[in-house]
């Protein structure tokens, strides 16, 4: 959605808050996680200097708090995807499509082959979709194995020490994979990418510039320009929604998430692993069911936020 001549809404405040919760919990999890695995690392010593001798005792607690925060954010995100029209549109736009394969192939040809034609991407390129689904995948895997390791005394009798070994191996390697992916993939597109260097501020400001859209999402820009001229109403609506969210949403999200966690934890206990997949898949179904409500989708100049992820431009 076009806010004004040079501002195109990419992430609503709600989505930015989700993203912020995700990134902060993710960073804390990475630090407190590798802190355990590499207790003698130089940066661990700095933490010890900063926090104090007993920093390590707080480490596991912080890790768990961050983990819970991330799971709650994820749960909220699922609700967001299911419950709001914008969320449903967002989910649909994130779903992999056949065109993504073509785009990927073209991109490969452009990057590594002889093709001089730069592929033109829509709202979400294969780059962002990879990013998004990697986070979904990672959260599920890390959440499940982390949960087993957290409640080891309970799980011991079901999965034996071998199971614990497997869980901790997966947790570790998945952590490396996720961290490297964020570092190499996401950070490149958000920071080093010459189109946005030094930083794509969409995750802070919520909008992209026209130039950025031209470079990164030309198809989407086309869509926006072609569909409807810039309408002030949606903008107003959007800004109203934004202001509402700004004031009310954080609290609401919390209460919602809390209630959610209660139900969630129940389901968690039943099936730690599948839990997340299930809601998501159900979401997908519901999304599909709701597809008729495509109006917002068509309009969808609206910003799309991948709560969990990065937005790249």
């Amino acid at each position: 959605m076009k806010i004004d001549d040079d501002k195109y809404l990419r992430m609503t405040l709600n989505e930015r808050v989700q993203h912020f919760l995700l990134l902060s919990s993710f960073i804390i999890l990475v630090i407190t996680g590798f802190w355990l695995k590499y207790p003698e690392a130089w940066w661990v010593r700095w933490i010890t200097v900063l926090i104090g001798e007993n920093a390590f005792n707080a480490r596991s607690l912080i890790h768990r708090i961050a983990a819970v925060a991330m799971i709650l954010t994820s749960v909220y995100h699922i609700i967001y995807l299911a419950a709001s029209p914008r969320g449903r549109k967002l989910f649909i736009d994130f779903l992999p499509k056949r065109s993504d394969l073509t785009e990927f192939g073209n991109s490969m040809k452009y990057l590594f082959g002889n093709s001089a034609e730069k592929p033109r991407f829509g709202r979400f390129s294969y780059i962002e979709k990879m990013e998004y689904w990697a986070v979904v995948w990672g959260t599920v895997i890390m959440g499940a194995t982390g949960f087993i390791l957290w409640f080891k005394d309970y799980f011991f009798k079901y999965i034996s020490n071998t199971g614990m070994e497997i869980a901790s191996a997966i947790h570790f390697y998945e952590a490396i994979l996720a961290s490297l992916a964020i570092l190499v993939w996401h950070f490149y597109f958000v920071f080093l990418n010459p189109d946005v260097y030094p930083v794509n501020k969409a995750w802070i400001r919520g909008y992209l510039t026209r130039q950025q859209l031209e470079h990164e999402h030309p198809k989407w820009l086309e869509e926006i320009e072609n569909k409807e001229p810039v309408n002030l109403e949606p903008e107003n609506n959007a800004s109203e929604a934004l202001s509402e969210i700004m004031i009310i949403e954080p609290k609401e999200t919390k209460t919602e998430t809390e209630t959610e966690t209660e139900t969630e934890t129940e389901t968690n206990k039943d099936k730690a692993d599948n839990k997340k997949n299930e809601p998501e898949t159900s979401e997908i179904k519901s999304e599909e069911d709701n597809e008729p409500e495509r109006k917002p989708v068509i309009k969808n100049n609206d910003e799309v936020s991948d709560s969990k992820n990065e937005d790249n431009v």
Binding site: K152, D153, Y154, F156, K157, Y158, S160, N161
Partner: peptide, 16 residues
């Protein structure tokens, strides 16, 4: 140390 673990299942070596 793990009082909750009433039955601890050890199916493989501890020191792998």
């Amino acid at each position: 140390c793990h009082p909750g673990a009433t039955e601890i299942l050890i199916t493989s070596k501890i020191h792998l």
